[in-house]
Design a protein around this nucleic acid. Sequence first.
DNA 1: TGATTTTTGTACCGACTGGTATATTAATTT
DNA 2: AAATTAATATACCAGTCGGTACAAAAATCA
Lengths: 203, 203
Amino acid sequence: MSAVGSSSHVGRPRAFDMDTALEKALEVFWRKGYDGTSLSDLTEAMGINKPSLYAAFGNKEQLFLKAIEKYESRPCAFFMPALEKPTAYEVAEHMLYGAAANMATKDQPQGCVVIQGALSCSEAAAVVKEALINRRLEGQQKLLERFERAKTEGDLPASVDAETLAQYLGTVLQGMAIQANNGATSEQLRRVAEMTLLAFPRV
Amino acid sequence: MSAVGSSSHVGRPRAFDMDTALEKALEVFWRKGYDGTSLSDLTEAMGINKPSLYAAFGNKEQLFLKAIEKYESRPCAFFMPALEKPTAYEVAEHMLYGAAANMATKDQPQGCVVIQGALSCSEAAAVVKEALINRRLEGQQKLLERFERAKTEGDLPASVDAETLAQYLGTVLQGMAIQANNGATSEQLRRVAEMTLLAFPRV
DNA sequence: TGATTTTTGTACCGACTGGTATATTAATTT
DNA sequence: AAATTAATATACCAGTCGGTACAAAAATCA
């Protein structure tokens, strides 16, 4: 109803809020994946028609990529702050418990759209698939850098292979997304997180 | 070329081998997912036309389900034998190293079709998605039963929560499938397996 | 050989796919 | 008020989707 424009523009005002429309699109992509989502699914969920969608977001592919940006900034907001925790253990702790809480909540689709948005997909989704792989690798790279820093800061044993540790933690986190899709509860994921942390190397 | 029939049947003989055609179908579903695979993709890969496909396999959904059965009996053949290892640790060991070798080999698509065949999908794939979730849960249930047996047999500490341990191992295995899709090598997955085993509870 | 049975290739089905042309509507600018 | 700008709704586009009708072809049975 209200077009919240940062500044008044000439021409007919947009009748929908781009941000909430993008959130709706994200939810559909998250639940159905890129290939499984049709433009009809999108326009229905967003409450707009196709020309409005194309004028505002480009096309299906660009809409998906913008939805992913929104996902990382909001629904998946636990990742970046976790990296700022003072020790490697606390980083892993916050990331694992954050994932446990986030991936199995009923407020949103189960799992993680970066993992399940285009895991196996048609050639039409190749760009999207690559983008998602890159997001996952970037996240793991951030973990690696954080663990290397932890070694210099002394809260992670020097004997630990930071690369393998980052890949191992990434594996558990990504596995938790599948578990959430399987119907695992947050409580179950929390126990998996706990077991993972029991073995986490500390000084 | 040769229709390997168990017994000679009346009528025009089938011009293709059902088993190899099913393998081709499996490979396409594995790479592209259920929604991302079209009948044209299938008939092209299988080297047959649509009426032959429907006569031999039913429809797209039934073809997928039959392809999954084949997957579990062959490409994913490491799972069941691993359960027969004498101790819980060895079960986990064979399962993890089996997955590391299997999910990142160049001989076949990366990852695991049971995980990536229909993770997020359209309503048209709902039956397939449920079937895959059940396969994953069944696998985890087998792990749970094996670990409970191990506790009675004494090679797994009685203090261990078998359910959480099975879920944890399932999480790592499923995470390895995502890692393989990210481009991880078998060597990298082997190191993740190694790190997982370092923390595995033993008597 | 002729009748029967089954698979094959072709051609087609309605429905839906992602995407757009066009005209109308609603705002600002002059 | 007239002109300009941009978003709306409708109707449409070619192409593809999963699935099938139909007739020719290739085997066995009688």
